[in-house]
Design a protein around this nucleic acid. Structure first.
Lengths: 255, 255
DNA sequence: AACTTCTGTTGCGTATAGTGCAATATCCGT
DNA sequence: ACGGATATTGCACTATACGCAACAGAAGTT
C-alpha cells in the first residue's frame, strides 16, 4: 500500500529523536533521512505545532515533545493486561498445542485471569478466576522468582512432588531466575506439567505471568526446555507490547 | 509558517484517537477531520506502518499504537524534574516578584532542588541542596498533605509561630489538601512567608513541590490567597507538563 | 436468503501541496 | 570583524497527496 510520504517522514523523525540524547538540529535530521534541510525544517515545525516535538528556545534543537507522553500515558491506561495477553496466549497454544494461561498475583496467591484451550486437549477445565498457591505452580513460581514478595511461611502439600522444603524451593527459584522460566513438574496436579514466564509492564514491574500446562505424557521432561524457550519468548513479546524496555531490567548501564 | 498538511492530518488523527474508547473507523476519522475516506485510509495505513496506530484485525477499527508508549516512555526517562520545573519557577517569579523554589522529599525532610531568585529581592540566600523540616515549611507541608508518608513524631521549634501541636498541624494539613496549597506563616524563619503546591508525575504520584517565599511585608496575609492561586495553577501546569492527567487523582470514576 | 446500507480499500486524473535549490538570516568560535 | 556553522524563507517545478468514483465485504432489515 502506498505510504503518505510526508507523514512517514514526520514519523521517522520522531523515531530518530528517540535515540538523540540532547535533541537534534534541523540539518542533522535532514542528513539522517536524506532529505533537504528545508523539508526537515517544515516537518519539524508541523510536529512542534502539535506538541510532538519541541524546540529548545536557546539552541533551537528539537527533541521529543510532551504530546507523546500524553498519548502514551492515555494508551497505557486503556490497556488491560488481559486484552493484550490474549493473542499471545493463542500464539502459545498454536506453537505448543497445550492449554495457555495468564495469571497475576493477588492476595499472596496465583489468580488465573485468562485461559485459551488447545483444540486437541480439553482435559483441563477452565480455571479463570480461581486462586492457586504460589509455591507449586509454574505461574506462581514466576511471581516468587521475579516479583518482590517474600516466600510464604507454610507450604501446603498437594502431590508427592510438591516441594515443601524452603531451601529446595529457593534453589528452584534461583534456577528459575537464571533461565527465565519456571516449571511445575506435577507439583500441584498429578499428571500435569506447566511452564511459565514473567510479563513486565512499561515500568519494568512484574504484572503477571503466562504459561502453558498439559499432560505429563505430552509435556515431557525432555521437551520441557523447548517449551520453556517458547513461553519465555512469547512472554517477552507480550512485555514489549506493554511498553517494557528490556534495558530497564537486565542491567542499569544507562546513566 | 506553512504546515505540512498530510503530516498535520496524521497528528490530528492521533489526537482524535486519544479520546476514542474503542478506536475509530476510517469513515469516522474522515468525517471528524472533514477529509475523504480514502485520504483517511491512507494516512491510517501509514501511521500503522510505523506502529503509531494499530488496526484491529477483526473489526478493522484503528486505535493508538505501541510506538507511542515506547516514545513517551523514553521521553519520560530523559526528563529530569529540575529541568522541566525551571521555566515554571521563572513564571512564578515573574508573576509574584518573589523567590521561587523546587523541592522534593528526601529522608523525611524537604530537599531544595532548585531556586530562582527574584530580581528585586535578593535577601534569601541560595538554599539549593539544603534539607529543611517538613512540618514548618510550605514545601514540606505539601509533602505531608499530599504525599503518603505519615507525620514525624517530634516537631522541632524554630520560631514562636512554629506549630508543634500534632492535632493543630493535622487540621492545617486537612485545610491544605482542601485548598490545594500550603502556607508557612513565619514558622521556620522570622519574617518569611511561603506558599507551595504539589507537583505530580505522569503516574499521579507526588514528586515534589514548588512554591514562593518572600518577606512578610510583601507576602501579606491579605494577599496570600492570591499567591496561593498562582502557585497552585503553576504547579498544575508543571504537573501536566510531566504527563500528569488530572483525572488520575481527583476521583476514581473510570471503571 | 435476497435486499439495502453501512463499512474499508483501491485506481486514476488533477492540481494542490510538498519538495529541493538557492538566498537570507542568525548564531558561535576565533 | 570575520569565516563556518547553523535554521529559516522565497520560489519554481513536478512529484505527491488529494477527492471522486468504483469496488468489495460485512452487518443489519425485510
Amino acid at each position: 500500500m502506498a505510504e503518505i510520504q510526508s507523514l512517514a517522514r514526520g514519523l521517522k523523525i520522531l523515531n530518530l529523536l528517540e535515540h538523540a540524547r540532547n535533541g537534534m538540529g534541523t540539518t542533522e535530521v535532514a542528513n539522517q533521512l536524506s532529505i533537504d534541510k528545508s523539508s526537515a525544517s517544515r516537518l519539524l515545525h508541523t510536529l512542534a505545532n502539535y506538541g510532538f516535538v519541541e524546540q529548545d528556545e536557546d539552541t533551537s534543537r528539537y527533541s521529543l515533545g510532551p504530546q507523546l507522553v500524553t498519548l502514551g500515558q492515555h494508551l497505557l491506561n486503556r490497556i488491560t493486561l488481559r486484552d493484550h495477553a490474549r493473542p499471545y496466549l493463542h500464539e502459545l497454544v498454536d506453537k505448543t498445542g497445550e492449554c495457555a494461561h495468564l495469571a497475576i498475583q493477588a492476595q499472596k496467591q496465583t489468580l488465573y485471569i485468562d485461559q485459551v484451550e488447545s483444540t486437541a486437549a480439553l482435559r483441563v477445565e477452565s480455571e479463570i478466576g480461581t486462586l492457586s498457591p504460589l509455591h507449586c505452580t509454574a505461574l506462581g513460581k514466576v511471581m516468587l522468582a521475579f516479583g518482590d514478595c517474600r516466600l510464604p511461611d507454610e507450604f501446603k502439600t498437594f502431590t508427592h512432588r510438591t516441594v515443601t522444603d524452603r531451601s529446595t524451593l529457593e534453589a528452584q527459584l534461583a534456577q528459575t531466575e537464571l533461565r527465565g522460566y519456571a516449571i511445575d513438574d506435577e507439583e500441584y496436579n498429578y499428571g500435569v506439567r506447566c511452564v511459565a514466564a514473567p510479563v513486565y509492564d512499561h515500568r519494568g514491574a512484574l504484572v503477571g505471568a503466562i504459561g502453558i500446562s498439559g499432560p505429563a505424557g505430552r509435556v515431557t521432561l525432555e521437551r520441557i526446555d523447548e517449551f520453556g524457550a517458547v513461553v519465555k519468548n512469547t512472554a517477552q513479546a507480550l512485555s514489549a507490547r506493554l511498553g517494557f524496555d528490556a534495558k530497564l531490567r537486565s542491567s542499569s548501564h544507562g546513566e
